[in-house]
Design a protein around this nucleic acid. Structure first.
Lengths: 201, 201
DNA sequence: ACAGGAGGTTACCAGCGGTAACACCATGAC
DNA sequence: GTCATGGTGTTACCGCTGGTAACCTCCTGT
């Protein structure tokens, strides 16, 4: 049976397998097992392991796909016309839009990220960190203030990313709330309305 | 062998089992299995299941303990003397202090929370939400502004909690950074220094 | 003396991630 | 032509996990 898997390079095969894995994740969420994924791809477990080493490897490859894709969207949003507020708004909106489009995939990535070891977690949540990084960088470029410190950049990046991510998680369980509302409230929170009238000193 | 488990009420027994589970989590982190926990308690699996139903039940009971404890600390911090900034600072510091004391437990709770179903996740991360809630309530009481809307309260609560939590997660992997620094940067982020000079309109 | 019900055990189940061993072609070398 | 080689694929297994059924045992109330 030289069905679908006919004349293909290993890279193409890898792509096919990843697409199958994606389909399973989208369908079965976190119940996606190596057996299920292999079945969906029309093969059996061992060749999956030959391609990706272990479950973590498959997960990393899968995560990389989505992360690259999402990062591209975030970057595009980050260079929107307008002031910092408008750009931040577009970026947050882009993130939540991605969550809205593939909630299963998003959840899967986040769940698994929490369970992986430090390096992988850093890599996956690094998306989210880079997201915050770029936001912080944009901020820094905007306000011609002194360059922010290393620790401040790190904490802010993770903090902002975590803020948006947590709001996204909550939103997944409350799909009745319009995306726009979530974005609006987050922007309001970020841009000073929280401590309004309360000097940080 | 009427060893330790002698004259005890079911509630006391439950407590003993939870303490054993706690010990295992603290020692073995997320590798804590029902078998390991049972062994640590000096018994076997089935009685663990009789007490807690399933792994999720044990997790929920375990989480409830720590959540109650942590919430008490957060509440205590939230009523510190001083302005809103000081109180917020104390609260964030209390949260990070708890993370610092029992990083293994904290990680375990967060990992598992991500994997549980909607209700449980809401319950566990509800800690974190209530944390944000109280912060938002404190804020609202402080500034005599109009009551904030329901959606704003929700998004802000989750957003703020997620911000602190993400910063805490990052901090777990960078223990060289002093807690005070993390707290300072978070407070700075929350109290307007992010969008400084950029009106939200 | 006997029923009953905690509290506990052994022994099992399906499913998981992961691996070893073997089969099936292709291709290229001699 | 034949033979080794290497990629693609299989079946069959391992240890372990969460979870359960069946039994056993001993203490208690009547």
């Amino acid at each position: 049976m030289e069905s679908v898997a006919a004349a293909t390079t290993p890279e193409q095969r890898r792509e096919q397998l990843l697409e199958a894995a994606d389909r399973v994740v989208q369908r079965d969420g976190s119940a996606a097992s190596m057996n299920l994924i292999a079945a969906e791809a029309g093969i059996t477990k061992p060749i999956l392991y030959r391609h990706f080493g272990d479950k973590g490897g498959l997960y990393r490859a899968l995560a990389a796909r989505h992360i690259d894709q999402l990062l591209a969207r975030l970057r595009a949003a980050l260079v929107t016309r307008g002031g910092l507020t408008a750009r931040t708004r577009a970026t947050v909106d882009a993130y939540l839009a991605a969550v809205e489009e593939q909630p299963q995939v998003y959840r899967f990535l986040m769940e698994r990220a929490a369970a992986e070891d430090v390096d992988v977690r850093g890599q996956v949540l690094g998306l989210v960190r880079r997201f915050g990084d770029e936001l912080a960088a944009g901020l820094q470029a905007e306000s011609a203030l002194a360059p922010i410190s290393e620790s401040r950049a790190q904490v802010w990046a993770h903090g902002i990313a975590g803020m948006v991510q947590a709001a996204g998680d909550w939103w997944l369980d409350h799909p009745d709330v319009p995306r726009e509302v979530v974005v609006d409230e987050l922007i309001a929170l970020m841009f000073g309305e929280f401590g309004l009238g309360t000097p940080p000193a």
